[in-house]
Structure formats: C-alpha cells, structure tokens
Computed example of a mutant assay.
Amino acid sequence: MRPSQQPVTEPHVSLVHDFFIQWGGAEVVIDALAQAFPNNTLYAAFDHPEIRHAPLDKATVISSFLNKFPFSRTYMLQIYKFLLPLAFASFRFPPETSLIISDTASFGKFIIPPPGVMHISFIHTPPRFLWNMPPSKKIRRNNFLRFMWNLLFGSAFRVSDYLHARTLHALFANSQETASRIRKFYRREPIAILNPPVYVRKFAQILADKEIEIKKEFLAFGRIAAYKNFDKLIKVWPKGYKLTIAGVGEAAEEVKRLANLNPEVTFINRYVSDTEKPELFASYSGFLYPNIEDFGIMMVEAIAVGTPVISFRAGGGGEIITHQQTGYLLEELTQEQLGKALDWCLLQKRSKQQQEQYLGNMIKYDIESFIREIRKIANKYKKDT
C-alpha cells in the first residue's frame, strides 16, 4: 500500500497594514493579500473592526499599543503620528512566519522581521506628509509650528523613512507614478509594478442582464477630503451640464456649501456601497475623478461597466485611461478643458459592444490577476520550511 499523504499546508505569511480607520483602496489591497495567503497573521497600528468589509470583517487583527490609547478612535493620526514608527517596530511575529508583506503609505515598512525572514513591501506611495505634501495652512502661518514640522517630519522622520526603505528585501509599486517616487525619494528600483486589485469581473456580472437608462448628467464620488478637489470641481463647473457628487468625509460641509450655490450641482452626503457602484456608474454619461492619484481604483470600476472617465493625464489617470477611447485626459482642471471633456462624453455611443471593449481594457486589473502575480513574487522570497 502507498503511504498516506500528509496534507500540504500553506506557508505562513504575516501581513502588515498601516491602519484600519476607513475603507479605501489600501484596504482592498490588504483584503486581496489575505485571500492570496489564507494562512496569515494580520497586523495594523490601529484597528476599527466596524469599518472592515467582508471577508476581513471576521479576521483577527493584532493592533499596536496605540490602539488602546485615549482618543485613538478620533484623533489618532493627529496626536500619535510621532509614535507610529515605534508602534510598527513593536510587533512580534510567530516563529512559523515564512515571509512578511507590508502594504503601506505610512510607516508599515518600519517593522523588524525575525532573523532569516524576508520583508517585502507593497508601496502605495512614500508618506505624503514627509515627501511631497505641503504642511497645513495653520502650520504655514505659524513660524514656530513650521519649525517643529520641519524638525520632526522634514528631517528626522524623512531620514528614518529613507533608511527603512533601503533595508527592505524588496519593494514593489502600485503604479508607474509611485515607482517614479520610489526612485526619486528612496533611490531604489521596484522589483515590479503591481496595480491594486479591482473586482472587474464582479462589477460587469452585476450589470449583465440589466437595462440601464443613461442620464445626460455626470457623476463624481469618493471620500470627500480636501485633496480630492471636489470643491475646485464645483468652482470650475461649466454652465449647462448637471453634476452629482456623492460621498462622505471631513470636507463634506465645504462641498455642500459650494454645491448649494450652484443649481446645476447636487451633493449627496452619504456612503456609496460596493453593490451600488456598478449601476450608479453605468447610469451617468461620464465619471469625473478630479484629483491626481497614485492609481485610482474607481476609474477602473467605472470603465469596466462602460462609463467613460474624465481625469488628469498625470498620475494614475494617464495609466488607466486611453485618451478619447475610454475617457478624456485633462492637463489641468479648467472650465474650458472640462467643457471639451464633457462634450466628448456626451457624444459617445453606449452600446453593448462598447461596454465589452471597455471591460476588455480593464480585465488586466482584476483581482485574480493580482493574486496570481503576488503569489509569484512571494515564492521568490519565502523562507524554506
């Protein structure tokens, strides 16, 4: 008789995420990583379980000591930002760990791997507040605060971030834009450019048998934050076109105020769920993405259901959109350029054939491709067990 075969177990992979405080593109990535490596332990500096979507809503997340601090659920990044490097360095990993993968736009790369275990990092962007985002208006107005900002963030943290990026066994970028920042700030070459995962097939399947009435109107939505440029979009919005903006976030009151001043702009201050997105995208003549992003998952989602996207040539827009085929690329957000883009969208024939062509252009971003590629990368760096 042949000896009974022992079941083959997946190697253990420790996954490090910056923090679970809201659901966005970074959380979609860590969700896909958890699917790619089901035998995992998940770590994050802060964890608010209620924001996690399925299947991560049932995951056990090991959070740092900061998660227990007072006000950690309201002002964690403002108050405790200085302690984030220490929080990540405090994590201890199980002895069976064969590889550590961090996905980070902050200090996730500061973890200390056990001897013999490699640490590879999915970089969403080098930390914006350290490298390429200006300090707040309040800091610019106050010379003392400006001095402290430069001393703590501009000097010590920047050097430390650079050194930790240099010690990673490997890093890969989520887009060409991020890869260029890695080369500029870290003086390293990413081993690969791996675009964030998108549920492209799932989005298309939701609309497979539906007849969608397309409005001669335009849509913009997402997290309502200052850097997302929804306020600027309203200010330059051309007359004669209808715009709906939907979402929640810290800049909602300002966007609502501006929308109330323009009868052609409607603001819906509520969260748009993943199940609502496909039909919402498909029912408008165009989707606007008015900020320069590292990548831009929602642009892929919109194009996947046949909706042309208007965004910038710089950043993720230039990688995702084929100009005057799957959308319209702007050099800058002006009323003149925006008017041309809106007119182009209104002239597009939204047929079944067009939707299939759009979907074909986006299928390379599907989550299945991401999982396949990240497993290939991980196999090169796993510790033999």
Rank of each mutant, 00 (worst) to 15 (best):
S14R: 09
A282V: 04
Y162K: 10
P85W: 04
I234E: 04
K364N: 03
Y186N: 12
L219E: 01
K202E: 12
F287R: 13
Q354I: 15
A89M: 14
S283C: 00
K184L: 09
Q35P: 04
E189T: 09
L171D: 06
K352Q: 12
R270F: 06
A179I: 02
R372P: 05
P127T: 03
R372L: 10
S273F: 13
E50W: 14
P263F: 01
L194H: 07
G24A: 11
Q22T: 15
Y365A: 09
P196E: 14
K81V: 13
K137P: 12
T178W: 01
F110L: 06
I191K: 05
E276Q: 11
T322Y: 11
E27W: 05
L330Q: 13
F172T: 02
L130Q: 08
N269V: 05
L42A: 07
L66H: 03
G316N: 06
V305W: 00
D103P: 07
E279Q: 02
V117H: 04
A208S: 13
G339H: 10
E368Y: 13
F37G: 04
D161E: 14
I100F: 03
N195F: 12
L84Y: 05
N39T: 10
S106H: 09
F19Q: 14
K277N: 08
L33C: 03
M299G: 15
I100A: 07
Y328A: 03
S64E: 02
I297R: 00
G306W: 00
F20L: 07
N262K: 00
L338N: 05
N67H: 08
K383G: 03
G360C: 06
K382M: 15
D103G: 13
N40Y: 12
N195I: 01
Q355W: 06
N229C: 11
Q337H: 13
I234Q: 02
S4K: 13
T334A: 05
D57Y: 01
Y186D: 05
R257Q: 15
I320N: 10
L168D: 07
E332L: 05
N195P: 08
F287D: 08
L280T: 11
C345K: 13
T60K: 15
F153Q: 07
E10F: 10
I214P: 06
H119W: 10
T97Y: 09
Y75L: 15
I193E: 05
T275H: 15
K380W: 07
L145R: 12
F69R: 14
V117W: 05
Q78N: 14
V248R: 08
N142H: 00
N260H: 14
R166M: 09
F218I: 07
L338Y: 02
F281A: 00
K184G: 02
Y289A: 13
N195L: 09
F370N: 02
E368P: 09
Q325K: 15
I206T: 14
V8Y: 14
H169S: 09
E319G: 00
N39Q: 07
S180C: 09
F295D: 11
E276F: 08
D31W: 01
A378M: 02
I367F: 00
Q335Y: 04
M1W: 14
H17D: 14
I212F: 00
N361S: 14
L258D: 00
L163F: 13
F221W: 01
V265G: 04
G286D: 01
V61L: 10
K215R: 15
F157C: 13
K383A: 15
V8G: 05
Y358I: 03
N195R: 09
L86H: 14
K137H: 13
E293M: 04
H119G: 03
P113A: 10
R187M: 02
